[in-house]
């Protein structure tokens, strides 16, 4: 569990990026911070692994105040995946993935064989192990980034718009893989995005942010969709534009769901066991 208590961040220039922020991020769940650019998402994420220092307040991980922990040691036990993969250009794929275990003193041989197994986990061919990042596609680089984030088997994985720079088809694929991975690995994931569809698809808990890191609403995707807390939230999730206001229209061939613009958005399937496919069902109602 990660807990923010009255966290404020004022940058040297005077910008208050985050103002009195309070939030509990439950263990083994995916919390998505979603908001437009400049709302303080990255700042919030980077305060967790002390890449950014707090101006005031505390952040606790499993009850432990992070300000009492050594930043380097803290970062080594938290996976971090960033938008531009952040891979080291002069390290091969396998060296990149094994970076943190090697830093932690795991013998190179074992670190590398573990890293090979991780390539399988993130859906990469082992034959890519000796390539350099510049020889990979954007999607492959992001997968390597995820593998590197997982290499030290951290309990917490921080992801800052990890799929923001890849094309939509690859993004869909990576999102599905992340959902699969999360089901297998059961990490506490903190995921940052400005894309509300991505937030609803991936998040167990979604946090909608306004400027200054102010929380507009926290809840599960269905809670937020069913009951937007404010006009801001309605507008942000597209409810006011009719994008998520689905209604049933009966046609000759059967019933279809249409959105507020009258465009077909999907079909209603009855009798699906919702609990077991909760994530997918939310995806199909939201898109």
């Amino acid at each position: 569990m990660i807990e923010f208590r009255s966290v404020t961040k004022r940058f040297p220039g005077g910008t208050v990026a985050v103002d009195d922020f309070n939030l509990v991020l439950p263990s083994r769940k995916t919390t998505v911070l979603v908001g437009s650019s400049g709302s303080g998402k990255t700042t919030l994420l980077r305060m967790i692994n002390r890449m950014v220092d707090l101006t005031s307040g505390t952040i606790e991980i499993d009850g432990e105040d992070t300000s009492a922990l050594e930043p380097v040691a803290l970062r080594r036990r938290i996976g971090y995946v960033m938008q531009n993969s952040g891979l080291l250009p002069h390290f091969t794929v396998i060296e990149n993935v094994a970076t943190v275990p090697v830093l932690n003193g795991v013998p190179r041989k074992r670190a590398f064989s573990d890293a090979l197994a991780l390539l399988d986990t993130v859906g990469l061919e082992r034959s890519l192990a000796d390539r350099y990042p510049s020889q990979l596609s954007g999607g492959q680089q992001q997968r390597v980034g995820v593998a590197r984030g997982l290499a030290a088997d951290p309990n917490i994985l921080l992801m800052d718009e990890p799929f923001g720079a890849v094309d939509p088809i690859v993004r869909d694929e990576l999102q599905q893989e992340l959902i699969r991975l999360q089901r297998e690995l059961d990490k506490t994931v903190v995921f940052v995005t400005h894309d509300i569809d991505e937030a609803f698809l991936i998040g167990d808990q979604v946090v909608i942010l306004e400027q200054g890191g102010r929380i507009a609403q926290v809840g599960s995707p269905s809670e937020i969709m069913a009951d937007p807390a404010s006009d801001f939230v309605s507008s942000f999730i597209g409810a006011d534009r009719g994008k998520r206001a689905l209604s049933i229209r009966h046609t000759e061939r059967g019933a279809v769901l249409v959105d507020g613009f009258g465009r077909a958005a999907g079909v209603l399937v009855e009798g699906v066991a919702v609990a077991s496919v909760a994530v997918e069902s939310e995806e199909s109602t939201s898109s």
Partner: peptide, 23 residues
Amino acid sequence: RIVDSARSVGMTEWQIVGRVELP
């Protein structure tokens, strides 16, 4: 961003100099 990424995975400042900035 490369240096930032090296720091965020847990390299010490010396490791950043030796393994990233120097090469």
